[in-house]
Simulated assay, not measured.
Amino acid sequence: MSFDLAALRATVAARGRVARVAVAAAQGSAPREPGAAMLVWDGGQSGTIGGGALEYDAARLARESLAQGGRDSLRRCPLGPSLGQCCGGAVSLVTEIFDAERLQTIDPSAPYLRRFAGPDAPPLALRRALRRARGEGLAPAPLLSQGWFLEPLLAPTRTVWIWGAGHVGRALVGVLSPLPDLALTWVDTALDRFPADVPSGVTVLSAPAPATLMPRAPRDADHLILTYSHALDLELCHAALCHGFAGAGLIGSATKWARFRTRLAALGHTPDRIGRITCPIGDPSLGKHPQAIALGVGAALLARAARAQQPEEREA
């Protein structure tokens, strides 16, 4: 998990002073991992540190801090009978109060380091993590040491382009937009095809001929093609194959895909290249409801990302 500076800025702009509560450390059985965070303001909150009594109590204390002028804090919370929980572990929570002025002090190009207690200088482990981040570009894991807390700033590592703002496109954006490592771009033929409440952080693009926007996509992007028109879908598949991609998926039936394979071959694409496009998208066993399709697509994206990380973890 990472410090989502963009989401915090947007929430402060909309709500004023905001408390951010983050899991700084976890021991034993705990509902969330270090770096998990929620934003709390008078009358609402977003995100989660695991729900239940822990989250309820943390949100209550955060609102009290906001009402009393705001003080940052670090506290250890045993997850036992005092909270009505039986996890058996413990978490350390940091609560920080942010406004527009304080946001200006955060360097968006470096991990976020701050002191709650302990020595005047950062401990050696944190200094080493900062050196690796600055010298080698290695993002540190969230780390609490001797009252100092270090978090990497969120930088989405995967780009997903969603082509089509119909029911399935809207369901996909709803499912995928909360995932912190995805940068979503949403494309359709006109702005009035998008809902009024597009989630923050989603880039919306429109063009009468959407395929003309394909060159703007990174070559390592994932593409999900699900427009209202089979002709548009075919143009986008052709454009994606010409441009290059990490992954591509097309909504449709086996019959539609058989026709598309024939037409794409006639456009000069080889069978192995055409075979890189997945059709249908999602998990057919879940059904054809837009949210069911979105859940299947989201699970497939997460599974592929997990497989890609396994070699790195073994080397580490």
Rank of each mutant, 00 (worst) to 15 (best):
L205T: 09
S206G: 03
P199E: 07
M214T: 14
P290F: 01
T270N: 15
T203K: 13
S285K: 05
W257R: 13
L241C: 14
L232Q: 12
G249F: 01
S285L: 08
I277M: 13
F260N: 03
A240W: 00
L172M: 10
I293N: 02
D283W: 10
G298R: 10
L241F: 00
L234Q: 09
P290A: 01
L205C: 13
V297T: 08
V187N: 00
S206R: 04
A248V: 01
A231G: 03
L236M: 05
V173T: 06
V175K: 01
R261P: 01
G282K: 00
D181Y: 11
A246V: 00
T262D: 15
T278M: 13
T185G: 13
H238Y: 07
A300T: 06
L224E: 03
R219A: 11
S229V: 09
T270S: 15
T185R: 15
H223Y: 09
D222V: 06
P199C: 08
V204T: 09
D188S: 12
I274E: 04
G287P: 02
P199V: 04
A207T: 03
E235Q: 14
L191V: 01
R273C: 05
R170L: 07
S229N: 11
A183S: 14
D188P: 14
W257H: 13
R170A: 08
G275A: 12
A211F: 14
I293V: 15
D181P: 05
G252C: 11
F260P: 00
A292M: 04
R273T: 06
R170K: 07
H289L: 14
L241Y: 00
A211G: 08
G268M: 11
S253Y: 10
A254H: 13
T255S: 15
W186V: 02
L236F: 05
A171C: 10
H289F: 12
G275C: 07
C242W: 07
H223S: 12
R193E: 07
H243S: 07
F194Y: 11
V297S: 09
M214W: 09
L295V: 06
I274H: 06
L267K: 12
Q291S: 13
V198H: 05
T227S: 15
K256F: 12
D220V: 03
L191G: 07
H243M: 03
Y228H: 11
L236I: 06
I293L: 11
T185A: 15
D181H: 11
R273L: 14
T212N: 08
S285F: 02
D192P: 04
A248I: 00
G247R: 09
P199F: 05
A246D: 09
D220F: 08
I293S: 02
V204R: 14
T185H: 14
L226W: 10
T203P: 11
R259T: 10
A294L: 07
L302V: 10
T278D: 15
S200H: 06
H223K: 06
T203I: 11
